[in-house]
Design a binder for these strands. Structure first.
Length: 270
DNA sequence: CGACACACCTGGATGC
DNA sequence: TGCATCCAGGTGTGTC
């Protein structure tokens, strides 16, 4: 169920179990992910010691001396650390055996995720052209303002474009625009510098709030519930069509923008 | 280049 | 209960 906060929560949950450990075996039960798991993936990973797990956009980068495994959870993926005695479930496609005795399993019913290998992750085609991290220093209102000049596309589509800023998914795009008071349909090129400053702050705050909320599930990382970390009750507009706006009471509107459901309040957003 | 539609895939909810 | 339909949190690719 991964938006950026869930991926970051996964990274934090995985780190103590994986960093410093060796991969003793990899079992690929179903290689048919978004791109096939490379034929030599298991051979490349076997024996590797994981030095660090980094998150770039929604990609998890498992760094080792020989190279990096690039893991994406797609729409429906999740990773768990579990005892190997527990039988794999349906859609548990890949399993990494660790020298600690535990296994990491990738569960992904829709198979939109990927598991790849790169000798140098920074130069990989999936990674090299990504925009700034929303929680990093290069991301701010001026960046969005400059990048958006002359653009007619809806601002919601604009902030979901990974070349502008990574990690803003469909839920948090609606939430950030609500916090910033900007209608999602507004042309990106017709938003002022000052309002972009507010939007950048809203994107940062909505994502970091969700990461903090996700943190409460960290202790459950080894359990099999695997529930998403964000709290539905903390969402202001997403998934609340026809319900009362939490600020003004007006019915929350919904509209498809760029083929994605979008939620907003016409009183609070202009 | 920019903007947009489409593709991939399974399963859960809803409606008849 | 069964079956058809719609919808879902991502994002690379192809087309105009």
């Amino acid at each position: 169920m991964p938006e950026l906060p869930e991926v970051e929560t996964t990274r934090r949950g995985l780190t103590p179990h994986l960093v410093g450990k060796h991969i003793t075996e990899v079992r690929v039960r179903d290689a048919r992910l978004r791109w096939p798991v490379p034929d030599d993936y298991a051979a490349l990973m076997r024996g590797a010691r994981i030095d660090a797990i980094e998150r770039r956009a929604k990609y998890l980068l498992w760094h080792s001396a020989a190279g990096t495994s690039i893991v994406h959870l797609g729409m429906s993926g999740s990773l768990r650390v579990i005892s190997p005695e527990i039988a794999p479930r349906k859609h548990d496609h890949i399993e990494w055996q660790l020298d600690s005795g535990m296994v990491v399993r990738l569960h992904d019913p829709r198979r939109f995720g990927c598991v790849l290998w790169a000798a140098d992750a920074d130069s990989h085609t999936l990674i090299k052209n990504l925009g700034p991290e929303p929680l990093g220093n290069e991301f701010h209102g001026d960046w969005l303002f400059e990048r958006s000049r002359g653009r007619k596309q809806a601002i919601k589509t604009f902030i979901m474009d990974a070349k502008q800023v990574v990690g803003v998914g469909n839920i948090y795009a609606s939430e950030a625009l609500f916090r910033a008071g900007i209608l999602p349909t507004r042309a990106a090129g017709r938003v002022s510098r000052a309002r972009y400053e507010g939007l950048a702050a809203a994107i940062r705050s909505v994502l970091s709030d969700a990461i903090s909320a996700g943190g409460t599930t960290l202790r459950d990382f080894l359990n099999d519930s695997g529930e998403p970390g964000y709290f539905k009750q903390s969402l202001s507009v997403y998934g609340r069509a026809e319900e009362a706006c939490k600020v003004c009471g007006q019915a929350v509107r919904t509209k498809v923008i760029g083929q994605r459901s979008s939620f907003y309040c016409t009183t609070c957003q202009r």
